[in-house]
Amino acid sequence: MKTMLLISSLLLPGAVHAAIAVVAHPSNQTSLTQDDLVRLYTGKMSSFPDGSSAIPVNLNDSAPLRADFDQKALGRSSSQVKAYWSKLVFTGKGTPPKEVASDSEVLSLVANNPNLIGYVSSDAVSDNVKVLLTID
């Protein structure tokens, strides 16, 4: 039992190093830059470049990929991101993206709503979603 725990904890950091796939509904025809992605996840933009409404979905803190996304996609630590949002939330200037707990929740939400955008570990991508951007 102890050995298994040890092995799984050794494997975990490897899983975090998988690339991040930014996913949307298969019907989404937009081309998204990383700047657009940052704007969507910092509340500065609320539509896709083609003008259709965009609703970002985030992973919550318990998902290891979240810290990775904050650092690699948004270029800030999770606590900087939280500080940024707390400034907006408590002054009525913005609401952070809704959070879910797992890749599979992101995938099922995104697969069923053309306005959503999310991200998952690239090895979790399914045929029901379209990858808009991959971040290493």
């Binding site: 707390s86 400034k87 002054t91």
Partner: peptide
């Protein structure tokens, strides 16, 4: 307007 929210600064 976020004077009270110490975590934000």
């Amino acid at each position: 307007d976020f004077f009270d929210v110490g975590f934000a600064y």
